[in-house]
Amino acid sequence: MVNILFIEHDGTEHPVAVDIGSSVMQAAVSNGVPGIDADCGGSCSCATCHVYVDAQWLDKLDAMNPAEEAMLSLSTDRQANSRLSCQLPVTEKLDGLVVTTPEFQF
């Protein structure tokens, strides 16, 4: 199991433990973590699973593909550490990952 900590925009923490192989988005949705809408169900085509990745984890993530970059580029709340959580596979090296969910998904 891999541990992921989701922090809501108001600071509420949601620690979850998930199996390897799913995505960070699925980890949130299947554990009832609020703040992730995932309207498209994980196909990188809606940008409603947007998260801010804690700085120390950024370089441990796979690089963005063009589709993710394109969707994020239209987000009104994008920051330097923005990612779409459906594009982040859960792997062993992400054990302890910390992400913050934005106030709104859009």
Binding site: D37, D39, G41, S45, C46, T48, A70, L74, F104
Partner: peptide, 17 residues
């Protein structure tokens, strides 16, 4: 939430929320 009415991708409905 998983429906097609807003479309998906770059042209996804801007006013959905």
């Amino acid at each position: 939430r998983q429906h097609l009415s807003f479309g998906f991708g770059l042209h996804r409905c801007m006013g959905n929320r």
